[in-house]
Amino acid sequence: MVELELTVNGKACMLKIEPGERLIDVLRQRLGLTGTKEGCGEGECGACTVIMDGRTINSCVVLAIQAHGRDITTIEGVGNRIRPHPVQRAFVEEGAVQCGYCTPGMVLAAKALLDKNPDPSPQEIGAAMSGNLCRCTGYDKILRAVQRAAREVTGT
């Protein structure tokens, strides 16, 4: 067992884990944060996206120990029904949610983009979301939702 210290959704966590544990397993199983989803287990689909120190990562291909000392944001740390994040509201209003399995990762990828670049071009949105696969929507509504959220963030 090794000791792992990290911040998850603003809370400091200290855990004892096996060295081989993946970040997704620590989040889902040890911390009960099941909003992070596993789709492929090899960093292709983006369902397991979380934000680490401001950058999106695939938590299925990151060892938990690599997150030692880092700051992690999962979907549970973004918005709530009373005060949703603009990306979350836009996803609901644009119909960008279907089966919902890619949604947490999509929301986090969009949030990470807008945090850095509040007024992205369609190409920049496309590039930022390219690591997240959706099998239901055909992407159009997702891209529209990110544009809508950007308008809300910038107040235009």
């Binding site: 918005g79 949610v97 919902g100």
Partner: peptide, 21 residues
């Protein structure tokens, strides 16, 4: 008219439960 999916809000917060959860 635009209709909001009944389960959309739960899904954007990661609250929707799939069996692995």
């Amino acid at each position: 008219s635009r209709v909001v999916r009944e389960d959309a809000w739960g899904k954007v917060f990661g609250q929707a439960q799939y069996p692995a959860d």
